[in-house]
């Protein structure tokens, strides 16, 4: 497996449709000292939701090598990229960022054919319109993981062959890992 290729392809995918922003980055650098002078005012502001793009993160600290955020309609292509590299799907899960009014869908991929390589692909979708395409066509094992994520977060995986409750009772009407879940 060629790690560099996977990283490059994911990077290209994540930056698709995104404007190149070198100037903005420069402005941000200049702005930084000012904000420090401002002191607490900057700290009080809530952190911005992460923008799409690729990060090579500190493996020793975070436990993954590559962390990429893509648009919701790109998750299938991201799955195809890691599938072509011979990687396997470890898990699909969600995170409820209720303050940003967004849900995050997280895909964990690992390479089992040799040297350890872990990739996490994530996509953010609006909380009130939680739709994302299924990746069961690429990884058959995603079937149950996506059903579990549907159980816990109510995320609709479009095109899933059998989007029914898996772990929760078939007649339940709640999604327990949503942060506004108050018990049943």
């Amino acid at each position: 497996m060629n790690k560099a290729n996977v990283i490059q392809e994911l990077k290209a995918l994540a930056s698709e449709g995104m404007p190149e922003e070198p100037e903005v980055a420069a402005v941000a650098e200049e702005a930084a000292p000012e904000a420090e002078e401002g002191g607490k005012a900057k700290k009080a502001a809530p952190p911005e939701p992460r923008k799409n793009g690729l990060l090579e993160v500190d493996y020793a600290r975070r436990g993954v090598h590559v962390d990429v955020q893509v648009a919701a309609d790109q998750v299938v292509r991201a799955a195809e990229i890691v599938d072509a590299a011979g990687m396997t799907l470890e898990a699909v899960t969600g995170v409820d960022w209720i303050n940003d009014k967004e849900l995050e869908v997280v895909y964990d991929y690992a390479y089992t054919g040799g040297e350890c390589f872990r990739v996490v692909v994530r996509a953010r979708i609006p909380r009130d319109e939680a739709n994302i395409p299924t990746i069961t066509e690429v990884f058959a094992g995603a079937n149950w993981h996506e059903r579990e994520t549907f159980d816990f977060f109510g995320i609709n995986f479009e095109g899933h062959p059998q989007l029914e409750y898996l772990l929760l009772p078939e007649d339940c009407d709640f999604h327990p890992l949503l942060k506004d879940f108050k018990g049943c």
Binding site: G86, L89, A91, T112, F139, A140
Partner: peptide, 23 residues
């Protein structure tokens, strides 16, 4: 095994040398 994310003795019984303790 790869498509379903199977690991452990199931994966090693299918000829893949993968063990987190080693890899």
């Amino acid at each position: 095994c790869r498509k379903y994310g199977a690991t452990g003795p199931v994966l090693r019984g299918s000829g893949v040398n993968y063990d987190v303790r080693k890899n």
